[in-house]
Write a protein that binds this DNA or RNA. Sequence first.
DNA 1: CGTTCTGTTGATCGAACTCAACTAGTGTGG
DNA 2: CCACACTAGTTGAGTTCGATCAACAGAACG
Lengths: 231, 231
Amino acid sequence: MELTPAERDALDGLEERERLLKRGTALIRENDRTSELFILKRGMMMSYLLLDDGSRQILRFLYPGDMIALSTLAYSRSPEAVVALSDCVACPFERGALADLFAAHPRLAAAIMALNQMERVALTDRLAGVGRTSAKARVASVLLEIRARTRGNGDGATDTFVLGLTQEEIGDATGLTAVHVNRMFRQLEEDGLIARVAGRVILLNEAALMRAANYVDRFAGLDLGWLPPSR
Amino acid sequence: MELTPAERDALDGLEERERLLKRGTALIRENDRTSELFILKRGMMMSYLLLDDGSRQILRFLYPGDMIALSTLAYSRSPEAVVALSDCVACPFERGALADLFAAHPRLAAAIMALNQMERVALTDRLAGVGRTSAKARVASVLLEIRARTRGNGDGATDTFVLGLTQEEIGDATGLTAVHVNRMFRQLEEDGLIARVAGRVILLNEAALMRAANYVDRFAGLDLGWLPPSR
DNA sequence: CGTTCTGTTGATCGAACTCAACTAGTGTGG
DNA sequence: CCACACTAGTTGAGTTCGATCAACAGAACG
């Protein structure tokens, strides 16, 4: 999607300030009172919910370009926590700034809404995975998700990548225990679908992995062409 | 939130056409090519995903006022199916109409985005439930959800209501089998939390049920006050 | 250079699934 | 208008997937 110079300026305006976050630092805690949103500029983060019994459900992994804390549009306290998984740069802006942007650039409002829907669909896919697929499928699916999102991060080779997640985190994303995630890794290795060397994961048989994961390519069906033409 | 007459008109404009749907009818099938959105005017619907093995994950129950198929903003084919659970009236409109509305009423755009976030948070709550809570908690949680959304539907008594769902559907929403949903109902009865009479559910001990369900009241923290003042 | 985190593996347990049979409604069409 | 089919709910028996508990090794870290 092409942006007019004015639209580009408006988006850049949201990234004026920068906040640096060390790996492991919280950007937002659950129930934090905040009226800020963020755009992630560099690094990797995750958002999650905590339950009464202390267990954690990871909702989403965040990568550069992602908008963070859109829920502040509806809630005065954050329903979810956001934490840096690597050293990060996040750009905060007030929710009022988003309202201004909507007023000045309705086409961007529609585009942001569309991006939002993509995120929503990712959430529904994760829900279906957790609710209706095997442990092996869920772990395979996380591997494919991380790979898809880190691809083109410079490293060159596309089928080898660093996960950047502990097995505990993968468990919290998929509704499994760390122990069982470990066993699923082993099984995927034994099946010849992946290999692991020094913290890196190698996808040996991507097609089979996608089958094992019930993978649906949501990028294939993208269609932003209906947006009104830029003025 | 108060609307200006112009804003009210704009929203009403989306509800000009009506489509009647009999119970059990599909409004949208998965992969349908559609550029329409809908506002549900009367009745109850659900949206779901189907997996390769034929299993189904129900994503959401829809009630009057809900927007349907927002994902057409980003996708040319629907990622999810939408089916009427009772006789329904849905109002279709083109996605272009939404773009026009955004241009004319930026404040409504922000408000719709905020509503969207509420729906997103409901999804994350469901995800955390399916990923990290017991079968009993998940069933209890569906009961509370349905009650909350059907409340004030005229029937008077608030702690007695008709579910309008089969146990199979509850299972598909919670990631359980119909058989196990049935056993959880029985357990909730034996625990004295609910009773069932002639297809109606009675909440006998709502506080305990909320505890059993890990219930979080997401309406309590709502805050739409930041929206720019109406002009 | 101990301490903590992460990963690994074994043994056992238990929650939820599967399969199967049966009942009670609800159509519905001959 | 009744026999038959179909759906929804119920219950029992046996199985399985993933959890839990426990122990240990190596890496990371202050």
